[in-house]
């Protein structure tokens, strides 16, 4: 059923979604489930950071604006403690990010910064490209 997409890897990917909006995480996770990927969802930044530290994900979808512990704090902690993880991060945000910040993200090794509402096919192709 999924053989028609050439970018689809044979191996299912482990994806972590960190976003405080439950409807968004539900939508993305059901899409990824249907695309035969493994999905872990957290709606809280701190929990997300713990999961990144204790697990190996192929790709991490990260929202920036979250109450209490936000995406920037996660990025800060990772850049200090485990900068290798940053290359797996896909930022997915509804805020408009200034060019300077995007450049900073790139310097940190984050290549993907997507704007909500994102095209889900585009999101999937980012997930697979980040995992490679």
């Amino acid at each position: 059923m999924f053989t028609k997409s050439k970018t689809e890897p044979a191996k299912p990917l482990e994806v972590l979604i960190i976003d405080d909006n439950e409807q968004i995480t539900k939508m993305i996770s059901s899409f990824l489930d249907m695309s035969n990927h493994e999905c872990t969802v957290v709606n809280d930044g701190k929990e997300g950071l713990e999961l990144i530290k204790t697990n190996q994900f192929d790709s991490i979808i990260l929202d920036l604006a979250m109450p209490e512990f936000d995406g920037y704090e996660i990025l800060n902690t990772l850049s200090k403690e485990d900068p290798d993880q940053l290359s797996k991060v896909i930022i997915l945000t509804a805020s408009s990010i200034p060019i300077e910040t995007v450049k900073k993200f790139k310097e940190l090794g984050i290549s993907s910064c997507l704007q909500k509402p994102v095209d889900i096919d585009q999101l999937l192709s980012k997930i697979t490209s980040v995992a490679e």
Partner: peptide, 27 residues
């Protein structure tokens, strides 16, 4: 910037589910 954030966020699941429903091989 607050408004933009608040307006764009609910559009995300709308757009996502519409795309999913259009993928008839999935849904």
């Amino acid at each position: 910037s607050m408004i933009s954030h608040e307006l764009k966020t609910p559009l995300m699941p709308i757009k996502g589910y519409v795309q999913l429903l259009q993928k008839q091989e999935m849904m």
